[in-house]
Design a protein around this nucleic acid. Structure first.
Lengths: 182, 182
DNA sequence: ACCTGAACACCGTTCAAGT
DNA sequence: ACCTGAACACCGTTCAAGT
């Protein structure tokens, strides 16, 4: 990769991150190119679609979520680890504008994006551990869990997105997906 | 209201309904004006914002949901009436593209739109009846309920939006918001 | 009183020309 | 090999001119 190409690549990522943060996931691509001091064609050369740019801009954030999941699964009992991770996933979905679209790609049976695959594998690890304890419904799949977490994030976001709301709604969801009648 | 104004009004509503159905809530306003055989300025005269047009185009659908809620509350026990109505609300949210944005305005403490007020009052009636039976958590507000229902709709939509998915996710939500420990 | 459509600003995307 | 930016198409919104 040529030196100027590499420089433009990182400039574009920085510009994209701040533009998405300011204007949401539909921030003007032209504006991003301008902020990066780069021709618009260059943006398309590096990131052929808006989604590709979104994914690249948030890759670090997504990886952090994966790492955090592993940490939690090592340091806490399965049920608590899952709860905490879901809380952090919700909080990130709400706080980081544009992450929702990206995480939607994780909530399918066969994720098509890198970040989707990572998030789903973390969810699978945490969920399986909690289920083998026997407190969570065995018919709940990782895909279900990620969809429902997106749902909780949507609900909490409508309420302002404060941690208190997330806990309230997430708590009820978890009550609903525990094994009952035991 | 002049005859041509009235005619343009209904033409715009029809054009908007089909355009929103085809292209979602971001359908081109210019295209809607063209379909209606009307100058673009006329669209803005009748409906100053996209939201105003959305609300007008779906007013009938929203009113039907209100009527349906009353029907159900008369013909079924409170718990079942609430469950069925929430199911239909979810199904409508998923099926009718653009309804989600509109229903988001109902999920606030003081809805600002006509349709928001209607949906919220229906939800209040059904929820209060179910709560007075004693099976649903008393600390659940109508606002909570509408937010969570939007959440379930989001989750079910990620899964294709079939009735089976809605029932599954809605069922778990309802399990989670029932009074426990009795 | 209401309608029309040209006009302006803005954005996404492509591609010939440059280095 | 990579970059630039003009060019094109499209959309939202306004407003002077028309009836």
């Amino acid at each position: 990769m040529r030196a100027d190409a590499r420089r433009n690549h990182t400039r574009l990522l920085n510009a994209a991150a701040s533009a998405f943060a300011e204007h949401g996931e539909n921030a003007s691509l032209d504006d991003i190119a301008k902020r990066a001091g780069v021709g618009s064609g260059t943006l398309y050369r590096h990131f052929p679609t808006r989604r590709a740019l979104l994914e690249a801009a948030y890759a670090a954030r997504i990886e952090a979520l994966g790492v955090r999941g592993e940490e939690l699964s090592r340091s806490l009992p399965p049920g608590e680890a899952l709860t905490m991770w879901l809380h952090e996933l919700c909080a990130a979905t709400i706080q980081v504008r544009g992450l929702k679209t990206l995480l939607g790609t994780a909530a399918t049976d066969t994720p098509l994006t890198t970040c989707g695959t990572l998030v789903k594998s973390t969810a699978t690890t945490l969920l399986t551990a909690a289920q083998s304890e026997g407190t969570l419904r065995p018919d709940l799949t990782p895909t279900d869990l990620l969809r429902l977490t997106q749902g909780v994030a949507t609900a909490a976001e409508l309420g302002g997105g404060e941690a208190r709301e997330i806990e309230r709604y997430l708590g009820w969801l978890l009550d609903g997906i525990r094994v009952s009648g035991d």
